[in-house]
Simulated scan of single mutants.
Amino acid sequence: MSRCVVVSGAAGFIGAALVQRLLAQGDRVIGIDNLNDYYDPSLKRARLAQIEAASLKASWTFYPIALEDGAGIEELFKAEKPQVVVNLAAQAGVRYSLENPAAYIQANLVGFGHILEGCRHHGVQHLVYASSSSVYGGNRNLPFHEQQPVNHPVSLYAATKKANELMAHTYSHLYGLPATGLRFFTVYGPWGRPDMAPMLFAKAILAGEPIKVFNYGKMQRDFTYIDDIVEGLLRCCDKPATANLGFDPLNPDPATAAVPHRLFNIGNSQPIELMHFIELLEKSLGREAVKDFQPMQPGDVMATAADTSALEAWVNFRPSTPIAEGVECFSQWYRSFYEV
């Protein structure tokens, strides 16, 4: 028997890729997305069209609603009765959170609350939800691992992601909801978000326009290829969180609990300097970038690096796509999709 899996943010970068893998393995998938205009909705519609072209109609249903629509989310859960929920919908972006904090409060806090309530009242067997490497905030102790405290967020986006982790833990504690939070590290690849560096850089490089290189290029990011992220998601969907039977309340482990809630990093574990990423992109696009070096931006962090040993132990998987291979795949897709 196939599962019914709800994927919120189904028209998004990660969501659309996950939906296609779930459909390919025979699951019935319910997609949620409000198709907002944070970035060009035509890219979201193109992702949905790709899903439609590849799916069996009986296995794919799409609801164009926002997580903030509590009544709509309740009706969806009541009608579809999912076994698994993957919450990827969120107001994304660190810098935008400085300009429009209300959007983050509504989508990432109120909206996530509606997802939790749907899971609680309709017998969902497992909630997998997107957290972010941004929760590590001002921490400079690399690589980041799940036992480190995450008490110093440097953006509202990061604060909402930490809040999601706390909310999910509480529902696991109060209602026994198995929940797994995944801290994504700088996801890139084909069909990526236009507000993120790879897409911004590719567009400017091919147009001969300057790219903004923040902190004068002295940044490190743990770039993680989209296919690796989706594989990790799939494996976590198949293994519901369980309580840590050895949990010690006198020495609590931040990544596990005496209830069925777990947190995992998912990253490539091979951080690279921003300038190296730009060099790889220049090589794959066959153009040299015009670089506009700028200071560090509010809400940014100097470096990210993931310790993924806990995820590997849990589902026997760690991301491994080499950065040069991933950048080449992204560049080929970009040229094809935008016909440049």
Rank of each mutant, 00 (worst) to 15 (best):
A241N: 01
A71K: 14
Y175W: 08
R221E: 04
T321E: 09
G137L: 15
I266A: 04
R221A: 07
M219G: 01
V86F: 03
A158N: 02
Y334I: 08
A102H: 06
C119F: 00
Q147V: 07
L166Y: 11
E80P: 04
A179T: 12
A90L: 11
G326W: 13
I14T: 11
L127C: 00
P210W: 02
K161V: 05
V19S: 03
F277W: 09
S284C: 13
T170A: 15
Q297W: 00
I14N: 08
H122D: 02
F201K: 01
A130R: 00
G181I: 03
V84G: 03
S132R: 07
K44T: 04
L127Y: 00
G176R: 08
R183V: 04
F264D: 15
P298R: 11
H122I: 02
L142H: 03
H152A: 15
V230E: 02
L281W: 02
R221G: 04
A102I: 10
N108C: 06
L206F: 01
R221S: 07
A66V: 02
T242D: 07
G9F: 03
A11F: 04
V19F: 00
L23V: 12
D33S: 07
F112D: 13
F317M: 05
E231W: 02
V135H: 08
P254H: 12
T242M: 09
Q147I: 03
S284M: 08
E68A: 13
A243T: 13
G326P: 09
C119P: 00
K57R: 15
L76M: 15
L250T: 10
P240R: 00
A158W: 02
C236E: 01
P240N: 03
E282W: 14
K78H: 14
N164E: 15
E80K: 14
Y171G: 14
L281A: 12
I115T: 14
R193Y: 08
G111S: 10
V340E: 15
A255D: 06
E231M: 02
P149N: 11
L116V: 07
P190A: 01
F317C: 05
Y225A: 05
L166F: 09
N268P: 06
L234K: 00
V29S: 14
N215M: 08
E80N: 11
Q332R: 15
P319T: 10
N265A: 12
Q148T: 06
V86N: 02
S172K: 05
I73G: 05
N164K: 06
P194Q: 06
G31H: 11
S172L: 05
V86P: 03
A158R: 01
D300E: 15
C4N: 04
Q25F: 04
Q220H: 14
L142A: 11
V110G: 03
E75V: 08
R28I: 07
P254T: 07
V5K: 05
I14R: 10
K78L: 14
Y338E: 10
N87G: 10
A90M: 09
G118F: 03
V6E: 04
V187W: 05
V187N: 01
Y175M: 02
F264W: 14
T170D: 14
P254M: 09
Y216C: 00
L233H: 00
I205R: 00
N265I: 07
A324F: 11
H121F: 08
F223D: 08
L18H: 03
E339L: 13
L156G: 04
Y225N: 05
L281C: 09
W60E: 14
A241T: 06
F201H: 00
M196G: 04
D222S: 01
L142G: 11
A324L: 09
Y157A: 07
